[in-house]
């Protein structure tokens, strides 16, 4: 399945169903990651319920140091 993540085109296994599974695939699941799918912001508690599909535009962001 082809996804656009943070502006880059990426191939991921078709078996990935949810944001949670995508984060596990990217080895990002032990971090605090916030997701936006096709411009819908997904609350972190809904990541496992949020389906992903071919051509989705996904933004993955996190908290970084700032003032």
């Amino acid at each position: 399945m082809k996804l656009m993540i943070n502006g880059k085109e990426i191939q991921v296994p078709d078996s990935l169903q949810s944001i949670t599974e995508l984060l596990e695939h990217l080895n990002l699941n032990d971090q605090i990651v916030i997701a936006e799918v096709n411009q819908d912001i997904i609350s972190n508690e809904n990541q496992s319920k949020t389906q992903i599909k071919e051509n989705d535009k996904i933004e993955l962001v996190r908290f970084v140091g700032g003032g």
Partner: peptide, 16 residues
């Protein structure tokens, strides 16, 4: 305070 930024999705270990 914190800022919000895109992740580098190709780098699994990103100390935060």
């Amino acid at each position: 305070t914190f800022a919000v930024r895109r992740m580098n999705i190709f780098e699994a270990t990103q100390p935060n």
